[in-house]
Design a protein around this nucleic acid. Sequence first.
DNA 1: TACCACTAAATAGTATCACTAAGTACCGCT
DNA 2: AGCGGTACTTAGTGATACTATTTAGTGGTA
Lengths: 111, 111
Amino acid sequence: MGTQMTEMLKGTLEGIVLSIVARRAGYGYEITASLREQGFVDIAEGTVYAVLVRIEQRGLVDVTRVASDKGPPRKVYAMNALGREELDRFWTTWTFLSDRLIRLHEEERSS
Amino acid sequence: MGTQMTEMLKGTLEGIVLSIVARRAGYGYEITASLREQGFVDIAEGTVYAVLVRIEQRGLVDVTRVASDKGPPRKVYAMNALGREELDRFWTTWTFLSDRLIRLHEEERSS
DNA sequence: TACCACTAAATAGTATCACTAAGTACCGCT
DNA sequence: AGCGGTACTTAGTGATACTATTTAGTGGTA
């Protein structure tokens, strides 16, 4: 993947995944597919699983093993209260950064 | 600084600095002050200088040493053609990511 | 049976980046 | 001489996404 997007995803990918899980509980393979549908075609599976392991270890999501008729058992991730707080903080941080970037972009164009 | 902002700045701080330099050539200490004025009060000096070293080594900026009557000589960074291209790519990448995050945020609120 | 495709998750090793913390250097003022 | 402000540098750390591979389960097919 392009280095630029790789670096930019640091710090945002976790929020993106949390946001997806917040809308609806899901498992890794499904979340990866969801990301691809949203345009993140180059995000590797392994990357998503690493994020999921991390948010699970931090207690931001609740995990349930569910049997599948199409393959190995799925680990379904559901948002909990702690994850909700983290996601709210994520949006606050992102909005702060985004506002400043928008301003910079506008100032750059008008100079 | 908060871990969240630290991680989110990865990949964007370089673009922010490039954007500042694009508007007007400047030196490290000045750019750091500019960042603080724009609300990035917690970005350490060392961090900014590291970015400047990097973009210089990548040939994205032209550097001139200018004597100062208030301290050591300044290294003034000015954007060049390569830096302009990189900055354009940065905005493209950021807009892509930002669009998707905005969509996620909206969908999250309306669900 | 043997092979392949798809589903599903995990892991070891690497590169990049921002941060902390400290240091060096130059100037004017008291 | 000492101090605060200006200005830049550097070594070491932690967090993150990436590459590449491995392991498992199911169903279809040559």
